[in-house]
């Protein structure tokens, strides 16, 4: 009998391999050379300093949205609202960036914290409704996504500007970009945010694994009734988990606002950071180290895919199909477990 831990490591790896194999077959089916296609993909991730910088830039918010989803998952909650929390965090960061004039060592933390608080607030509402009225958080967070989308657009258009589609660019005192990084990666938009994302992962690991608070949240995630019986405040833990989860997603928004773009423009649809965050959390088995690895994989796939049309003629949406298939395989891990068990049994005969 294989241990659960082995499964938790094996299932994601097998899923990724299956996803990539499916992608290869798809390429063969449409008359492309899969070796060329994946060669272009790898080239698009590691090929030169610029693409690698862009990959890391993409990984940054993915780590944070991945953490957001994973943190909620550990408490038995499904935060599908990272999408909206990212927008609210993004808006808050840019707003503080534009409204305040301060030296960098005050300005940057202030904007980053504002983003986290805004995201936390957006997570607080579904958490509160779940805890007090038993409303399913999936539905509320989906609705909150659209409310975030339309209200950030309205704020950008009518509050921050006079009917323009984009805010001003934030001043240097609040930017996470640095000239030396841009020069080193030959013009990529990589910024200091990657350090914030890695630090956030450390925070999540410590909170979940090394604090009473984290222990209680995990306990509530496993069994609410047992936790209540043990004297834990279930409602408080549910709300707290959604608040922390929202704060992580809000930070992802700050990465976009203060790092990648330096402004916020009106959006016609979602950034997909939140939905990709679900994939990241799932593949990373909802652990902080797993989320970092999975964010690197998906961030790499996303940025690497951009080189596929030019270098191999393959539409980059192939990677979206591969990612969706990987999620299916992880979600349906029952199948993979069953196959592994079957084979390990037969091997013993």
């Amino acid at each position: 009998m294989m241990s659960n831990r082995m499964f938790n490591i094996l299932v994601p790896i097998i899923s990724v391999i299956l996803g990539l194999i499916a992608g290869a077959f798809l390429m063969i089916g449409f008359g492309y050379n899969p070796i060329e296609g994946y060669g272009a993909l790898l080239n698009g991730i590691f090929g030169d300093a610029y693409v690698f910088g862009e990959t890391l830039r993409q990984v940054t918010p993915l780590i944070l949205t991945g953490l957001a989803v994973a943190f909620a998952f550990r408490t038995g909650l499904f935060n599908i609202g990272a999408e909206g929390q990212v927008f609210i965090g993004w808006l808050a960061a840019v707003w503080v960036g534009l409204a305040i004039d301060a030296p960098a060592f005050i300005h940057i933390p202030l904007a980053v914290i504002a983003a986290a608080v805004a995201g936390a607030l957006w997570g607080f509402i579904p958490g509160l409704l779940k805890a007090t009225r038993g409303v399913h958080e999936v539905i509320v967070t989906i609705m909150m996504n659209y409310i975030a989308l339309y209200s950030t657009n309205a704020v950008i258009r009518y509050v921050l500007t006079d009917s323009r589609d984009s805010t001003d660019t934030i001043p240097d005192s609040v930017s996470l970009r640095a000239d030396w990084i841009t020069t080193m990666t030959t013009g990529s938009r990589l910024h200091y945010g990657i350090l914030i994302a890695l630090f956030a992962a450390l925070v999540m690991w410590v909170v979940i694994n090394r604090t009473t608070m984290g222990y209680e949240m995990r306990s509530v995630g496993f069994n609410q009734h047992a936790s209540r019986y043990a004297g834990m405040n279930v409602k408080k833990n549910i709300i707290l988990a959604m608040v922390i989860s929202g704060a992580f997603a809000g930070l992802a928004g700050a990465m976009e606002g203060l790092g990648t773009f330096g402004y916020m423009s009106t959006q016609s649809g979602f950034s997909n950071l939140g939905f990709d965050g679900i994939a990241v959390a799932l593949l990373g088995a909802n652990t902080a180290p797993g989320v970092i690895l999975a964010a690197f994989l998906f961030g790499g796939l996303k940025i690497g895919a951009l080189s596929m049309p030019l270098q191999a003629g393959v539409p980059n949406e192939l990677v979206d199909i591969i990612i969706a298939l990987i999620i299916f395989f992880v979600a349906a891990s029952y199948m993979i477990r069953w196959v592994i068990l079957r084979f390990s049994k037969e091997g013993r005969k």
């Binding site: 599908i80 679900i278 994939a279 990612i323 969706a324 999620i327 349906a332």
Partner: peptide, 8 residues
């Protein structure tokens, strides 16, 4: 999760 994957 499966629904999210369907969307993607």
């Amino acid at each position: 999760v499966s629904g999210v994957a369907i969307n993607m």
